[in-house]
Amino acid sequence: MGKPFSHSFIVEGRNFVQAGTASTKIKTMLKELGIDGGVVRRVAIATYEAEMNIVMYANSGTVVLEVTPEVVRLNVNDRGPGISDIDLAMQEGYSTATPEMREMGFGAGMGLPNIKKNADDLRIKSTVGEGTNLEITFRIN
């Protein structure tokens, strides 16, 4: 693969019908780029969880996919309530999902832990009342 590849996706808050579209497209793109199947699966899981968190908690957001010969990187940015206690949010089982979301099978409090488990590096920055940024990196080799 020659020059870095990059693509950006818009994710709408609270749009549960559109939800999952960005992750599904990113999975297809990475396969077409010939990225190793194991890496593709890990990226797909992380993208899905990050995308769903925008849908559930934020007003709107973007997912930027970047592929270099060394890494796959996701930059996930949203405008929304932000996360006041990131350590708490990272704990498996912690969730502020509404009863309606839980009825749909969301709110296990596993999304951020799933991202961490599948990524080689995860950085979270968040400002309450403004939004959240995740930088998620996967090594290709």
Partner: peptide, 22 residues
């Protein structure tokens, strides 16, 4: 629970669930 399935199912599995939404 969708995140549980995302975390713990494997390719080629059948997934039994009550959830019917999109």
């Amino acid at each position: 629970l969708l995140s549980d399935v995302i975390a713990n199912s494997a390719a080629g599995n059948v997934w039994a669930t009550m959830q019917v939404h999109v």
